[in-house]
Design a protein around this nucleic acid. Structure first.
Length: 883
DNA sequence: AATATCACG
DNA sequence: ACGTACGTGATATTG
C-alpha cells in the first residue's frame, strides 16, 4: 500500500490578492453590511476553491510580502519604486486574506526583508528535493524561473479567471530557453513594473536571441568582444553593471531563512465553522449556501423558532393581525403548486400543508374576511395562488415586498431573505439554500420546509413596523397605501381574469407566415449564392459584408452590426437587404407573437394570463411577463393583425380601449411650469405642430410640413429622455451640429423646460434622488460619478424618471379608481390590460356607451395638473378593432 | 450566460 | 474629448 504522492501548493498571496482586486472591479457590487469592500476576497475565495478542487493538494502555503523594503532594496534603492500605493479599497481587505486561507485549512507565511517570491522559491526547492509535486500560483511571470520536472508554475491571466501553466517544456517551446535562463532574460530586459533597468533597448526578442547564442549573461560578457560593432553592443557594454544587477534582482532566493517545516504545511481540510463565520461576516451568501452544510449550520446559529405544524385548522388558530406566507417554487403562479402555508403573530406561528388548508373551513373564512388584517410578502402573488386554490384572499394590510420596492426600487429581489437582510433581519434562509437552484431544485423534508416558512412569517412580522416607519419618514404613505397596495389587488384581478385569445386566428397566421418565410428564405439563399442561417447575425454579416462586399456601417462588440438602421441604409445597394428585412419582420412575428402567444393560451379557458411585475421598474411603470402583453405589435399593419386574435370572453361583448394622449409631455408641462408648453395644451393645440412652429419660426399651423412636424416630434421625445445632440442626430439622421441647433432653439423657446432640467439635476446632486409628483423616489448613485458616461446617464435619468414616473403614477391612480367605480356601479365590464398609457376593458355591448363616458372621466381626472389630460377611446370586436 | 435584435410605451 | 437618447421582455444564436 502506497501513500498518495505529496503535493505542495504554493500561492503568491500578495500577487493573487492584487489580481483578485483588479480582476473584479465592481467595487459597489461587493460590500458587506458594514460597508467593507469585499471584491478581492470574493475573487480570492473563488480561486482557492478552484485550485483545491483541481489540484487536491496535500500541503498548502500562501506567502505574502512583508513590509515595504527587502534585501533587494539594499541592492537597488529604486526596486519596485514608482509603484502606485495600494488603493484603500484593497488595503481594507488585506487583513482578511489570511483569515480566509486559514479557514480553508492552509498556512500563511511572511518573512521580514523577503518577498513572497523568495518564500515560495525556498519551499518549492525544499519540496522538490523531498520528492513532492509542487504547484505555484502567482500573477508574477518571473516565477516561471522556478519550474522543474516536479514544479509547475501557474500564472493568472485575465484577472484570476484563467491560469496559464508553465513547465520546463512550455518554457522551451515558448522562449526556446531553459527555466534557469529566465533570470538572464530579465537581467537583459529589465522589468518596468518592478522598476529595474536591464540593458538599454534590449527587449524580450533581443534578449532571447543573445541567450540562445551565449546561454547566460556571464558567458555573454565573456564573449562580448566577438559581437559585431553595433549600437546594441555599445548598449551592452555601457549597461553591463545594470545587466548583472538586474539579474540578481530577478533571481528568486532559494535559501531564505524560513522556519516552518514542510510537514507543518499539511492541509488540515476546510474549517467549516471558520469558513461559515467568514462568509457571514462578508455577506457571501452564495458561498454559504454552497457549503452544503451551511443551511443546517446557519440555522443552528439562528434563534430558535417555535411553531406548530397543524393537521387540523380551527378558528382559535387565528387572531386579528397576522402575517401570512404561501410557498410555491415556480415563478409563474398561474400554474405552480402550493407547497405549504404558514401564518402567525409575534407570539405564535402555525404551518400547514396545502391539503390541511383546503380541508379547513376556518382558514378560508379567515382568509376571505376583509376585517381580518394580514401582512404578507408579495400580496398579488399570494392572492393569485390562493385564488387557484379556491380561496379569495382579502384583508391585506401591508405587503413587505411592495413596501421595500417603494422605499428603494432597487430592492426588487424575489427573495424575502434578501429584503430582510437589507433591513438587518437575518433569521431567515435564502430560498436557494433550502431548495437549491437550477436542475438541483428540490423540496426538502417537511421539517425543514415548515421551519423555513415559519421563519418567513416571523421575518414578515419583524419587518412590518420598520418598513412602515420608513414610508412615513419618506412621506410615501399615500403612495403606498392609496396607490400601490390597492393597485396590487386590482392587478391580481386582472391577471386572474385574463384575456381571451382565438387560437384559430393565430394558427391561420402561422401557416401563412410559414409559407412566406420559406419563400423569402429561398430568394435570400439564391441571392447569397449559398444557404446560411439568416437568424445568425454572425453568418449574415459574413454574407453581406465579406462575400457580397457591402460597406459595414456599424460594428458591434462581436462583429458587424446588421440592425435595421444599418440595413435600411444598404437597401438601395442590393436586393437581398430588403428580403432580409422582410424575413426578420416575419420571423419576429412568427416566433415571438404567433407561436409565442399560442403557448400561453390556457386550454381550459382559452385565455392568456400575463403577470404584471409591480416591483421591478426603476421608474414606477409596470412590466408584463409570461407573456409580455405590453409589446403586442401595432406600428406595422402586418404585425398589428396579431391583435385580431385578442377578443372579448363572450359573444355579444366588445373590447374597449382608452389611452392618454401625450401624457408625458403634459406631465412635463406641469412640473416644469413652462408657459409656452402649458399654453399649447390649454389651447388644445397639436403639440408637435406647436413645437415645430416655435422652434422653426412658422406663423401658421398649416405651414408646418409633415417633415417639420416629424422633426419637432423627435425633439419633444428627446426632451423627455434627457436630450443630447448625438441622440437626436441619430434619431433624425442629421448631423450633430444640426441637432444641437434644434436643441438650442427649443430651449430658447421653452425656457421653463430648460430651467426644469437644470433644477432637477441639481436636486439629484444634492439629495441623491429624484421624485415624482406622488413622491415615488429614484436614487441616482452615479450622479457624482467621475466617469463621464455614468454621470451623464444619471443626469438624463434624473430628467426622465420624474416624467415617466409621474405618468405611471397617474394611470395607477386611474386604475384603482376605475376598479372601484366599476364595482360601485355594478357594471359587468372587466379591466383586462394596462399598456403604460392605455387601459383595455371588455364589456357587454350595451355597456360601451357607459364606458365611453366613464373611463375618460376617471382617467382625465386622476390628478389635477396645470394642463388638462386628454384621453381617446375606441371599441370593437377585437383589440385590433378597438383603434 | 452573454449578445444581438426587435416588439411596445 | 468623453459616447448616448428613457423604460421594458422574448427570441435565437453562440461562447
Amino acid at each position: 500500500m502506497t501513500d498518495k504522492k505529496k503535493k505542495l501548493l504554493l500561492v503568491d498571496g500578495s500577487s493573487v490578492a492584487f489580481r483578485s482586486f483588479f480582476g473584479l472591479p465592481n467595487l459597489d457590487g461587493f460590500r458587506n453590511k458594514n460597508g467593507l469592500h469585499t471584491n478581492a476576497l470574493y475573487a480570492f475565495n473563488n480561486i482557492l476553491e478552484r485550485i483545491f478542487q483541481t489540484e487536491e493538494p496535500t500541503h498548502l502555503l500562501v506567502a505574502f510580502d512583508s513590509g515595504k523594503t527587502t534585501f533587494r532594496n539594499a541592492l537597488y534603492g529604486d526596486y519596485k519604486g514608482g509603484r502606485a500605493s495600494m488603493p484603500s479599497e484593497l488595503s481594507e481587505q488585506w487583513p482578511y486574506f489570511g483569515v480566509l486561507v486559514h479557514a480553508f485549512g492552509g498556512k500563511t507565511y511572511e518573512l521580514v526583508n523577503y518577498e513572497a517570491d523568495d518564500i515560495i522559491g525556498t519551499y518549492s526547492r525544499m519540496a522538490d528535493q523531498a520528492g513532492y509535486d509542487v504547484v505555484i500560483i502567482s500573477g508574477d511571470k518571473d516565477m516561471i524561473q522556478l519550474t522543474t520536472d516536479n514544479i509547475r508554475v501557474d500564472i493568472t491571466v485575465k484577472g484570476v479567471s484563467e491560469l496559464k501553466s508553465y513547465t520546463p517544456d512550455v518554457i522551451r517551446g515558448e522562449y526556446g530557453i531553459e527555466p534557469r535562463q529566465i533570470i538572464d532574460m530579465k537581467g537583459l530586459m529589465g522589468d518596468s513594473s518592478d522598476n529595474y533597468p536591464g540593458v538599454t533597448k534590449v527587449g524580450e526578442k533581443t534578449a532571447l536571441k543573445l541567450l540562445t547564442e551565449y546561454g547566460s549573461i556571464e558567458n555573454l560578457y565573456e564573449h562580448i568582444d566577438e559581437l559585431k560593432k553595433s549600437k546594441m553592443k555599445e548598449n551592452l557594454i555601457n549597461d553591463k553593471e545594470n545587466a548583472f544587477m538586474s539579474k540578481t534582482l530577478a533571481t528568486i532566493d532559494l535559501d531564505s531563512p524560513v522556519t516552518l517545516k514542510l510537514d507543518e504545511l499539511a492541509v488540515e481540510g476546510k474549517q467549516i465553522d471558520k469558513l461559515t463565520d467568514f462568509y457571514r461576516e462578508m455577506d457571501f451568501n452564495g458561498f454559504l449556501d454552497k457549503l452544503g452544510v451551511a443551511s443546517e449550520d446557519r440555522s443552528e446559529s439562528f434563534e430558535d423558532i417555535h411553531f406548530e405544524v397543524l393537521t387540523e385548522i380551527r378558528p382559535e388558530h387565528f387572531t386579528d393581525r397576522m402575517a401570512l406566507y404561501v410557498e410555491m417554487l415556480e415563478d409563474n403562479y398561474h400554474d405552480g403548486k402550493i407547497l405549504a402555508v404558514s401564518w402567525g403573530t409575534d407570539e405564535k406561528i402555525y404551518t400547514a400543508s396545502l391539503e390541511t388548508v383546503l380541508a379547513s373551513v376556518a382558514f378560508e373564512e379567515w382568509a376571505e374576511n376583509v376585517g381580518a388584517h394580514k401582512i404578507v410578502y408579495d400580496g398579488k402573488r399570494t392572492m393569485v395562488m390562493l385564488h387557484y386554490a379556491g380561496i379569495a384572499l382579502a384583508g391585506i394590510d401591508f405587503d413587505i415586498l411592495l413596501a421595500s420596492y417603494i422605499l428603494n426600487a432597487k430592492d426588487n429581489s424575489k427573495d424575502l431573505a434578501q429584503v430582510a437582510q437589507e433591513y438587518g433581519y437575518n433569521d431567515v434562509s435564502f430560498d436557494e439554500a433550502i431548495y437549491g437552484k437550477g436542475a438541483k431544485t428540490a423540496v426538502p423534508e417537511d421539517a425543514i420546509l415548515h421551519d423555513h416558512l415559519a421563519r418567513k412569517v416571523k421575518a414578515i412580522q419583524a419587518l412590518f413596523a420598520q418598513l412602515n416607519a420608513e414610508l412615513e419618514s419618506n412621506v410615501q404613505k399615500d403612495l403606498y397605501y392609496e396607490m400601490e397596495l390597492p393597485l396590487s389587488f386590482v392587478l391580481a384581478h386582472m391577471e386572474i381574469q385574463g384575456i381571451k385569445v382565438e387560437p384559430q386566428r393565430l394558427l391561420t397566421m402561422k401557416e401563412e407566415f410559414a409559407g412566406r418565410l420559406l419563400e423569402i428564405e429561398k430568394t435570400i439563399y439564391a441571392e447569397a449564392g449559398e444557404e446560411f442561417n439568416i437568424n445568425s447575425p454572425k453568418q449574415l454579416g459574413v454574407i453581406l459584408f465579406e462575400k457580397m462586399g457591402l460597406p459595414a456601417i456599424k460594428k458591434t462588440k462581436t462583429g458587424y452590426s446588421t440592425a435595421v438602421d444599418v440595413l435600411e441604409k444598404l437597401q438601395a445597394q442590393a436586393p437581398i437587404v430588403e428580403h432580409i428585412l422582410n424575413y426578420r419582420q416575419l420571423a419576429k412575428l412568427q416566433s415571438t407573437y404567433v407561436e409565442g402567444l399560442l403557448k400561453f393560451i390556457k386550454p381550459e379557458t382559452g385565455k392568456i394570463h400575463t403577470r404584471y411585475q409591480q416591483t421591478l421598474t426603476q421608474t414606477g411603470r409596470l412590466s408584463s411577463v409570461d407573456p409580455n402583453l405590453q409589446n403586442i405589435p401595432i406600428r406595422m399593419e402586418e404585425g398589428r393583425k396579431i391583435r385580431q386574435a385578442f377578443v372579448p370572453q363572450q359573444a355579444g361583448w366588445k373590447l374597449f380601449a382608452s389611452d392618454y394622449s401625450q401624457i408625458e409631455l403634459r406631465v412635463l408641462a406641469h412640473i416644469s411650469g413652462d408657459e409656452h408648453l402649458r399654453e399649447a395644451f390649454l389651447e388644445g393645440q397639436d403639440i408637435h405642430t406647436s413645437t415645430a412652429m416655435r422652434v422653426f419660426g412658422i406663423e401658421k399651423p398649416e405651414d408646418v410640413t409633415a417633415n417639420l412636424r416629424r422633426q419637432a416630434k423627435a425633439v419633444n421625445f428627446g426632451v423627455v429622455y434627457g436630450i443630447s445632440d448625438y441622440g437626436l442626430s441619430q434619431n433624425l439622421n442629421i448631423t450633430r451640429k444640426a441637432a444641437q441647433e434644434f436643441i438650442d432653439r427649443y430651449f430658447d423657446k421653452y425656457p421653463g423646460v430648460k430651467q426644469f432640467m437644470e433644477d432637477i439635476v441639481k436636486e439629484a446632486k444634492e439629495t441623491g434622488y429624484v421624485e415624482t409628483l406622488f413622491h415615488r423616489r429614484r436614487y441616482l448613485p452615479d450622479i457624482h460619478n467621475r466617469n463621464f458616461n455614468l454621470r451623464s446617464f444619471a443626469e438624463r435619468t434624473a430628467i426622465n424618471s420624474p416624467i415617466q414616473g409621474t405618468a405611471a403614477d397617474i394611470i395607477k391612480v386611474a386604475m384603482v379608481r376605475m376598479d372601484k367605480v366599476l364595482k360601485e356601479k355594478g357594471l359587468q365590464a372587466n379591466m383586462l390590460l394596462q399598456v403604460h398609457d392605455e387601459l383595455i376593458f371588455e364589456c357587454p355591448e350595451e355597456e360601451i356607451p357607459v364606458l365611453e363616458k366613464l373611463v375618460p372621466e376617471i382617467m382625465e381626472h386622476a390628478v389635477d395638473l396645470a394642463v388638462p389630460l386628454k384621453v381617446d377611446s375606441n371599441s370593437g370586436d377585437s383589440w385590433y378593432d378597438a383603434k
